[in-house]
Amino acid sequence: MTALLSLQRISKRFRGLVAVDGVGFEVRQGEIFAVIGPNGAGKTTLFNMIAGALKPDQGSIIFDGRPIHGLSPDVVCRRGIARTFQLVRPFPALSVEDNVVVGALLRRHGVGEARQRAQALLRRFDLFDRRHRPASALTLPDRKRLEVVRALATEPKLLLLDEVVAGLRPTEVDRLVAVLRELNRDSGLTILMIEHVMRAVMALAARVLVLDHGTAIAEGTPDDVVRDPAVVQSYLGAEAV
């Protein structure tokens, strides 16, 4: 398997604070890769640099063989990376369906065609019957799914999920996990996720990177990582083992 995304010694400072410090890793084509770590570890900063929302101070990000660091978010999205936001950001006054149509229009010029694509995705994520409601009227779990659907509508090669199951009930977590695994298996979608909910990480990720204070402290399979003493110390806590 080749690397779809490769980060080389990425750093980002905010004034004096080093948010991300020389982090490097590779996400292989077709795998599900998770980044975990305590609050303030630099996970979202890392994400924002990959998605183009922030420019790294140092280092390079190679996606699909081409550097993408410093490109604007819309260009990064057109290259094939779609993201969700930790605090969900649907277009509130637009209908659920129109939210997804916006994403689908990235690679389709006809609105009708984009609508068909949107409806197929909404069916798959159990949002079809709510498609005419304004996005602002959805519950948080539904809005989280809508965020994923809108990102998927842009037909990404790599999907960035920022704490997409946080705040969901365990049954909802399992449902979303199942759909994501299905997408990964059926269409070979590569997924890079930031996640706090270990239940989802353990169920989905092939490999995990652990961040703490902006540096990578461990990398490996989920089973290896949760046994790593440094990880237990900094993040999971003794009772998690």
Binding site: A51, A53, S72, P73, D74, C77, R78, A82, R83, F85, R89, P90, F91, P92, A93, L94, D98, V101, V102, G103, L105, L106, H109, G110, V111, A114, R150, A151, A153, T154
Partner: peptide, 26 residues
């Protein structure tokens, strides 16, 4: 309003950053 550009406009109106993340050249 009912064309591709109309959808992109409304996305920008609703949330410009989210629109850009969805690939809209704002």
């Amino acid at each position: 309003l009912e064309s591709r550009i109309g959808y992109f406009w409304r996305a920008i109106r609703e949330d410009e950053e989210a629109a850009r993340a969805a690939g809209v050249a704002t």
